[in-house]
Design a protein around this nucleic acid. Sequence first.
DNA 1: GCGTTGTAACTGGTATGCCAGTTGGATTCC
DNA 2: GGAATCCAACTGGCATACCAGTTACAACGC
Lengths: 221, 221
Amino acid sequence: MPAATPPSRLQSRAYSELRRLIVSGEFPPGTFLSERQLAQQLEMSKTPVHVALERLEAEGFVSISAQQGIVVRGMSVEDIVDHYELREAVECWTVRRLAGRLNEAQLKLLQENIEQQQVALRDDDLDALMRLDSEMHCLLCSFLGNREIMTIMERLQDKIHQVIIRVHDTDRTRPTASVAEHVQIVDAVLAGDGAHAAALMAEHLEAGKRRILNPSRFPVS
Amino acid sequence: MPAATPPSRLQSRAYSELRRLIVSGEFPPGTFLSERQLAQQLEMSKTPVHVALERLEAEGFVSISAQQGIVVRGMSVEDIVDHYELREAVECWTVRRLAGRLNEAQLKLLQENIEQQQVALRDDDLDALMRLDSEMHCLLCSFLGNREIMTIMERLQDKIHQVIIRVHDTDRTRPTASVAEHVQIVDAVLAGDGAHAAALMAEHLEAGKRRILNPSRFPVS
DNA sequence: GCGTTGTAACTGGTATGCCAGTTGGATTCC
DNA sequence: GGAATCCAACTGGCATACCAGTTACAACGC
């Protein structure tokens, strides 16, 4: 048996696609969605779409009101604070744990990422910087080999991506500092100084949070 | 309009009920479930049951194979290790953050919990001890007022409950030590010594993990 | 007796139709 | 003209029917 095509449930496709549309900003916060319309757009029936939306609601990406409609959730200021607290807890612990334990392959991945960050910074490519930042944080977590943590980090990165693409500041100070902080964090991890790496990570995340919260405009639940 | 009964979707009821049945051990790991049978048991149709199961799969409580069946997931040794790593990250950060910031009402809640633990210990009521332990850890996290963290903690507590009810050791050493550790942790938080509280919490969780992993028998995914 | 094969009884996944409830706007009545 | 009202066009939630795929077992052929 060649196993043919993996059955690949429609609901999985609906989930991935919808999550992508929301995270990418194509469905910005506040957008009203309709099961029927989405079903038509995704060329499937309501059922798998319904299941996917239900899961997205559980993960906080949409809000469903019976007999009313579905609306894409944004993050409130409180949500963002909560979000960064969780990231601080997880990521500080991560670098503390990783300190002095990186192998060569892992180090190479980090260095490649940082080099690309520096290129993107020079080219003023903010989209690439954003992607590389997310990748860097996920990369560090992935080295733990902990699926629980990875799942959470991927969700957190997606949620913050949804917010950050709507923050347009022309100031280059923060991206420049951010790349430098990444270098310092990796250096501290490499040096085996877990406490220092954790402290740097905390400052790094705090700065990221301030950048998002300061140019304050901001959405709703 | 008196708003009558809140609509309370059937799928929410299905989700809560199924999660309860799994966590409580009534559906032990490895149990085969059937959408139709569950629908009959819960007195509703397949649809809400299907949605609930899909969400439970996303949260790791069950495993669904198309055209085959649904099986209640247990935790592998790796799952347990991952689980405790995440708890260490979150809970150590929590007590560090809480150190020196408890108000009187919060302190009272903690003290009441500890008193009940001591009573349960004296009465040799292991079920109560288990419940109070879970409550104590959730209590601490709840003081942060962080919904992200609370949601995660509730899921983690449920998953570990599912495992721990299957560990029957007659040794009273661990429960006794556990209660004492809770007292020390609260004392450290109260004294405002975050680093010490975090260190105590790490040891406490490590001991809990060892207790589960040592009497090793253990299940599958 | 053993291996093969065919079949029937399941499984979850999906499509469809209907339901109750909400909403917004046109209409009607003051 | 303004306000209350009613109705039609939605919404998501649920039940049902059907589908494809899997599995286990019985019957058959060797």
